[in-house]
């Protein structure tokens, strides 16, 4: 059982800086994930233009037939989004956790160049743990 199918992080200009798959079917190669990420970036921006009222900050949840996409945008414009099973709860909380890990292990890493793909072992390890914990919590419920 995979509650979470995949996780994406895109920088403020729509470039994919992190992508991890947790067991979705079918292959999504590097080019596809890059395209999907920048497409999401644009859709997010367009959705703000179509808002009937002021103060729209873009799509937070997309409900498709076979998955839910939860998106969190940080103040600096970095977007985090997870693809999960339809109706999965508390994904906002998970995204906040991922954001915290990002600030701790990526942004505070002196060797990390801003807006570039994330290659930090500690981030990977902690992320895996966070996702695993989330899964266990989900199974327990």
């Amino acid at each position: 059982m995979a509650a979470i199918y995949s996780l994406y992080i895109i920088n403020k200009s729509g470039g994919l800086i992190f992508y991890k798959d947790y067991g979705s079917k079918g292959r999504m190669d590097t080019n596809d994930s890059l395209r999907v990420a920048s497409l999401w970036h644009s859709m997010h921006a367009i959705s703000q233009q179509l808002s009937p009222t002021t103060g729209c900050t873009g799509i937070e949840l997309l409900e498709a037939d076979t998955f839910d996409l939860n998106c969190f945008q940080s103040l600096t414009g970095t977007k985090f989004f997870v693809v999960c099973e339809p109706g999965t709860q508390n994904m906002e909380a998970l995204l906040k956790v991922v954001y915290e890990l990002y600030t701790d292990y990526v942004l505070k890493n002196p060797f990390y160049e801003m807006e570039m793909p994330i290659r930090c072992e500690l981030f990977d390890i902690n992320l895996t743990q966070a996702i695993q914990k989330d899964r266990v919590a989900l199974l327990g419920r």
């Binding site: 995979a2 199918y5 995949s6 979705s24 079917k25 079918g26 999504m28 596809d32 999907v36 497409l39 999401w40 644009s42 859709m43 367009i46 959705s47 233009q49 179509l50 997309l62 498709a64 037939d65 076979t66 998955f67 996409l69 693809v83």
Partner: peptide, 21 residues
């Protein structure tokens, strides 16, 4: 713009679908 958004979101959903091979 609305039609374009729907069209693109549909292709995005079709591509992201984690259950089909």
């Amino acid at each position: 713009l609305m039609f374009g958004l729907l069209f693109s979101l549909k292709s995005l959903a079709a591509k992201m679908d984690p259950t089909s091979v």
